Amino acid sequence: MTEIDQGIQYMKEGKLEEAAQYFTDEIEKNPQDPVHYINFGNLLLHMKDYERAERFYQKATELDDNAATAYYGLGNCHFEQENFESAKEPFEKAISLGLEEADPYFMLGMTFLYDEQFKLSLPYLQRASELSPEDVDVQFQYGLALAQTQQLDYAKSTFNKVLALQKEHSDAHYNLGVIALYDENIEQALEHFNQALEIQPEHLLADNGKKQIEKMLEEE
């Protein structure tokens, strides 16, 4: 195991001080290698030390303008601080440099989703869902984007896929309940709201939806 591999292993084990020392030593030995700066940036990001993490990622891009993972790290720095507009460019850069994994597509899609630019989020979340078909969170967020853009049939199919991956997903049931209401299928909506509440009794939105349906049925 190389020294840098050992540093990553320390991170996985939660031994952050040991990891920091390894990355520091590697940077001192090889100050022109961007990988060490990226790894240290990842450690600092994990510790929510965003300002220092950003400096390490920036240094990596100065050493190698094609360091896609450094731009991905920069995007995460901005995203975690809810600077969604600032996060878009580095995520886009990471993708343009060939980081063909679900994560950058997903995170770029999420920046648009949180910025309420739902249509712009769709192609990135769709690509992430294709690259990571078994990832529950990816599939769920893609379903939300589809619902927000009124593509309800596709959203319904995606939320059902979420439930196939994770049977007890209260938010998927809640959203299927909302779609059923749009389709005027009251019984199905009530069933989904009940299932959401069975999984998560404090699910306020599902509880509100259930009460609205019960009130509608009483007034009939």
Rank of each mutant, 00 (worst) to 15 (best):
Q151S: 09
L113I: 01
A102D: 12
G143D: 03
H173G: 06
E198T: 15
G109N: 09
D64C: 05
M216W: 15
D65W: 12
Y72V: 00
S157H: 13
K215A: 14
I179P: 00
Q212S: 14
L176N: 08
L97A: 03
H192Q: 12
F91K: 04
V178S: 09
H78T: 06
A172F: 00
G7L: 00
G73K: 02
Q6H: 11
H192S: 05
I27Y: 00
E134G: 05
K93H: 05
S96V: 10
N83T: 08
I95M: 03
N160M: 14
K29R: 15
E191Q: 14
L144H: 09
G143F: 00
Q188T: 12
E17F: 11
Y57R: 00
E26T: 10
Y57D: 00
G143Q: 04
I213P: 01
D207H: 12
H169R: 10
K59W: 02
D33Q: 13
G75R: 07
M47H: 09
I199A: 04
G73C: 02
E184S: 12
G109F: 03
Y142S: 09
K210W: 00
E89I: 13
E85R: 14
D65A: 15
K119L: 14
Q117T: 07
E214Q: 13
D171I: 04
L165A: 05
K88I: 15
A67V: 06
